[in-house]
Design a binder for these strands. Structure first.
Lengths: 177, 177
DNA sequence: GAAGATTGATGAATCAATCTTT
DNA sequence: AAAGATTGATTCATCAATCTTC
């Protein structure tokens, strides 16, 4: 149990998923073992990536959430989005956007404007400082392949293609309301 | 934007990762696109799974964390573990275990005992009610393949095998302290 | 002094209720 | 009344500091 704890699970002598895979079939049958393994792996990978990526972003004064928001703005050439749209694109609760954008504003990375055409909506607009931060952070993340170095591109594309099936399949279309 | 919001991102007209994949190469080159896509997919998958699994567990009065703890105890035929060991196996902070186990105790699913041999350590021991809850919940989860139905077993095993490379590679061995 | 666990404080995520503008 | 955003209360994860037992 080396330097892990704290968000960053390390490489382990005890592999939790392997252990579960060993014991699962005799207790509950083997049917769900692939699913159980994949779910475990996804959860653990997400935890690990969170730690790695946040560590990469820390020198830039960003977290993954804050970087995510900045990138969404950068990718909309106007560099601005209504909070509601930003919330939808990031897929986080509308309420979370409020505090997130407020924090970015405190650091001078975005500006908040009321829309003149409809003064209900607040516009989050990226500032020059915000663009710089996003660019620099992206260079860092690209260089370390988003914490994924060590895995081949073909494998990464395979993971992407498979997981994409979770939201492109017709499985949980909206229940016709 | 149908019934999603609230933890459960639905199937979307606007696909955030596809959008990023389109714009990434011209801005920052294509090198990190597979990594970026995989990371995005993992984060989104984890979010989706969290929603689905917690919905499946709710009728059993459990959450994913609480189920996770119970399963770890069930899988140790004594049905009991010191909090420190449980914390390590679940890879959550030692402080988080305290409140988690306390909540399980409140519901009568685990018992807390001080070890007679070393009265510093607290033992979390699963109760009969805890075993029942874990068994019932496992049947439910197995039946819906942990929220992964719709994806072929071979693909799930592929995802597992690839992601496993993140913690079995020598990449981040402890920095020799 | 060190291991094991706990407490209290801070920050993020979520939900209901509120406020403003349309 | 409805859309957009915000506030306040709750919960959970995290970190530092504390308390007990060895």
């Amino acid at each position: 149990v080396a330097g892990w704890c704290a968000t960053v699970p390390g490489p382990l002598d005890y592999d939790p998923i392997e252990d579960a895979r060993r014991q699962w079939p005799e207790r509950w049958g083997g049917d769900a073992v692939p699913a159980m393994s994949a779910v475990g792996a996804i959860v653990r990978a997400q935890l690990l990536l969170g730690g790695r990526i946040n560590a990469l972003l820390q020198p830039h004064g960003l977290t993954l959430s804050r970087y995510h928001a900045l990138i969404k703005l950068v990718l909309t050439e106007e560099g601005a989005l209504p909070l509601g749209v930003l919330s939808a694109r990031m897929e986080v609760h509308p309420t979370a956007i409020t505090s997130l954008v407020r924090a970015l504003e405190r650091d001078g990375l975005v500006r908040r404007d009321r829309l003149r055409s409809d003064r209900r909506t607040t516009l989050a607009a990226i500032t020059p400082a915000g663009r710089e931060a996003a660019e620099a952070a992206t260079v860092t993340l690209n260089a370390s392949r988003f914490g994924m170095d060590g895995i081949a591109d073909a494998d990464l594309e395979a993971v992407y293609a498979i997981l994409r099936g979770m939201w492109t399949s017709a499985r949980d279309v909206a229940p016709a309301d």
